[in-house]
Amino acid sequence: MSEQDVTRTYPRHFLRAAVGGVFFLPGLIFASWASRIATIQQTLHLSDAGLGAILFCIPVGLILSLPVAGWLISHIGSRRLVVLGLIAYAIALIGLGAAPNVPILIACMIFYGFASNSVNIAVNTQAVAAEKLYEKPIMASFHGLWSLAGFVGAGLGTLMIGKRIVPLHHFIYVAIAVVFGLLIARKYLFDDKGPSEQGPAFVLPDRSLIKLGIIAFCSLICEGAMFDWSVIYFKKVVSAQGAWMGAGYTAFMCTMAMGRFVADSFSHRFGLKRTLQVSGLLTATGLIVSVIFPYIATAMLGFLLVGFGVSSVVPMVYSAAGRSKTMSPGMALAAVSTIGFVGFLVGPPVIGFIAGAFNLRVSFVLIAVMGLCVTGISSKVKL
């Protein structure tokens, strides 16, 4: 089925709504896990360095998914991979909540990383197909729904903690909601299943795609740091108490969601390169502010800037990758998103290692450098 066939079957806004839905669902899964990391850390008596080591298992799952995700995209299509991947992702979430000890938690995290990367590639391939039906960029708005889901998931996590509901029961409720939403959205997704492509499961991307992947990598290190360490940073560095421990995470999620809903218009007006340059500077500035002035008001301001900074980088990079002239959209996205997503998953454990050797403030300074790298590399790439 081509993009034109989609509009003959049902209006294009049906596809856009369905794709938005399958962006929201994995965002809800991820935010649900992120909101309970501190609880699981306390339950299993993990130090910061120990938690960092455990989190490093998620990238292991991602790496294992590389050849499989590329093969699946080319053989069964992104719609089927969305369905299979989201179900696996929901199951992995339940496993994280049920893990009674560190070895089982490690196994569940590997599976979680495997499923998350598969879903990431599949939903972005769907987004590229939907964007082709419109005359202006819409990719960032899809990622905005992922961020909005993160905000909803964070709020739900706070509620579950307040009600003293254990992570397992919390995650089961989320998994049921995800499966229900998937059943609704599946019918309207773009069916790109075609004749199976022959050749290797994973093909090395060209230089332009590698540069796009590196930009995503640097930005996603910053984004991953915010998801996994913002609450801990506010607790241990800012010395926030009670509900204020989640204030930084909430501030970050709010501006990240807002930024993604305006990024398409900004990019359309000022260009992709300028958008990426400004994004990197905002990210670095926000992190430095939160390190130099570790107080609730100033740290919140810094996290607000980081949210705006990271909001548009990944959507813009993925949109550019989907227009590759050397690879199919699915394979190009598999290559670029994989490079970028390694940063998203590797960043948090690296922060844990650095925090164990020094402290969290030193970790956040090094993460700020990644924001500057986004600006620097974007300035040298033809976009």
Rank of each mutant, 00 (worst) to 15 (best):
S2C: 00
V6D: 10
T7Y: 01
H13I: 10
F14M: 13
R16C: 06
I29W: 00
W33F: 13
A38Q: 15
I40Y: 04
H45G: 09
A49E: 08
I63L: 14
I76T: 08
G77L: 14
R80W: 10
V82W: 12
V83T: 06
A92V: 07
I106M: 15
I106Q: 14
A107P: 02
F111H: 04
F111V: 15
N117F: 13
T125E: 07
A127T: 03
A129F: 09
K132N: 05
K132T: 13
P137A: 09
A140K: 04
S141D: 01
H143T: 01
F151S: 13
G155E: 02
L156I: 15
L159G: 10
M160I: 08
G162K: 07
Y173H: 02
L182S: 07
F190R: 03
F190A: 12
D191N: 15
D191M: 05
D206Q: 09
L209P: 08
G224K: 03
M245S: 11
M245R: 15
A247N: 00
Y249V: 03
Y249K: 04
T250N: 06
F252K: 02
M253Q: 11
G259E: 05
H268S: 14
F270S: 08
L287N: 11
M300P: 00
L304D: 00
G307L: 02
G307H: 05
G309L: 13
S311V: 03
Y318D: 00
S324T: 05
M331R: 09
M331A: 15
A334M: 11
G340K: 01
G343N: 03
G343V: 05
F364E: 09
A368V: 14
V369M: 11
I377E: 08
S379W: 07
K380Q: 10
K382N: 11
L383H: 07
